[in-house]
Design a protein around this nucleic acid. Structure first.
Lengths: 244, 244
DNA sequence: TTGGTAATTTAGTTGAGACTAAACATAGCG
DNA sequence: CGCTATGTTTAGTCTCAACTAAATTACCAA
């Protein structure tokens, strides 16, 4: 359900892919150059330039030649819609088909271009208006707002810190599979131990099991610091917990 | 899972659509002329001719100029794969999202081009290797065999006949919505009464309620004749024979 | 200020897949 | 047997989205 129901056939799959790429590049850095865009899209530089020209003509972005590119409101809206579709599909496939987390991205990459407003409404109904996908990435709302919470990664934690895994934004299937075997997916509670000096590997406890992981991997795990609401070990009734 | 894993990017969405259209036209009539194909695809005749030339070059069909077109084994295999995808998506969306039957076709029309072997396997697992979609249309098996059972429609039944609805192959949403309100979807048990002469409307009982329907609508309802296995109502009311 | 290098854009080509207009077969009828 | 209507194919053009090669701009260093 979108204010401007955008079922223009004017917006091809290709255009959607470019806008999404530009949006994510814009999020994670300054000016978006055509070379960066070309690399991300796996095309030659002139192909990116000519698509940029088309997108500018369509009012999706502003282009300062030789400088870079910036999405307009219209362009951002479509990019966010595609990202919403992507993450809704991931959440739905995980929920309904138990598709393992390492396969979700590849499937959603194709499905994101094919989600009608009607089907989206059915998903939202069944999933209960989810706010995050299985990687912990925020799902933009239908009106185009995104939760912009920024989490530190495990390497930012001090020795002895407790934290809860919130996001594993990697798209590398092997990495995600490994994190799954380690029980380090969103929601997991961990305690960090810094045993090795000189930026060595980190030790962390999850599910009561100790794991030693490299810093590169640790950098892919975004956490919310703080002791999780401790479950009472032995007896009294479960206290209710509430995140604000 | 396909013997020949066909993830050629050689086969575009457009090619898939043409092959599927040719397959269904071939099923329901003799020679497939380019004009018929053009009409079905909503394109001008020369567009169909040039696509036919491409498909022939790719070995998907044989073309006898001015005569018609016939799918090769290769072409049929892809058409059946797309039809399998279409019907699996319909079954899945109905199962997992409760998408109403009148919306299924439109959604599956887009999704059928986007179903990986992996996702297909997940669906088959969750749905229990379904043989029919919610319209009662047979789902081709992964190796390309199709249940070719042919059912008569309601207008073929004699007065007083009992039957079970097996297929409602229409793609008209309004018609399907109406059939749903009448309780005349696949699986429903009906009893036919011919009250009106001269090929007038038909009266049938489903769920213990009498409905009067026109012959045009009745022609869209394919049934398996015979009394359904009657559950013992109250007592030795009417003992019915079971179907094999 | 000027050159050189790297990034970017322009120019020109290609293949899909659509279109219209025109040429060409086929079949039915006199 | 030939004419004509209808259906089909050919010819030529258009847009999208890619490519390579060549020209242009930006930036940095001397």
């Amino acid at each position: 359900m979108h204010l401007m129901s955008r079922w223009d056939p004017e917006v091809s799959r290709s255009v959607e892919d470019y806008l999404k790429a530009i949006y994510t590049l814009q999020e994670s850095g300054g000016a978006v150059r055509t070379s960066t865009l070309a690399e991300r899209m796996g095309v030659a530089a002139p192909s990116a330039t000519s698509m940029v020209a088309r997108l500018a003509a369509g009012g999706f972005l502003r282009h300062t030649p030789y400088r870079g590119v910036e999405l307009t409101e219209k362009g951002s809206r479509i990019a966010l819609e595609i990202i919403r579709h992507h993450r809704l599909w991931e959440a739905f496939l995980h929920h309904a088909l138990d598709v393992p987390i390492d396969q979700l991205n590849e499937e959603a990459e194709r499905l994101e271009h094919v989600l009608s407003d009607e089907l989206e409404a059915h998903m939202v109904r069944v999933l209960g208006d989810p706010t995050h996908d299985p990687h912990g990435d925020p799902i933009p709302s239908a009106d185009g707002t995104v939760d912009s919470a920024v989490y530190p990664n495990v390497t930012d934690l001090p020795d002895g810190a407790s934290a809860t895994v919130r996001r594993v934004p990697s798209e590398d299937p092997a990495l995600l599979r490994y994190l799954k075997t380690l029980g380090l997916l969103p929601g997991a509670s961990i305690v960090l131990r810094r045993r090795e000096p000189f930026h060595g590997p980190l030790t962390l406890t999850a599910d009561g099991v100790e794991r030693v992981i490299g810093r590169e991997l640790a950098g892919q795990i975004l956490v919310e610091p703080g002791s999780p609401p401790e479950l009472p070990r032995a007896h009294p009734a479960k206290q209710r917990r509430r995140r604000g």
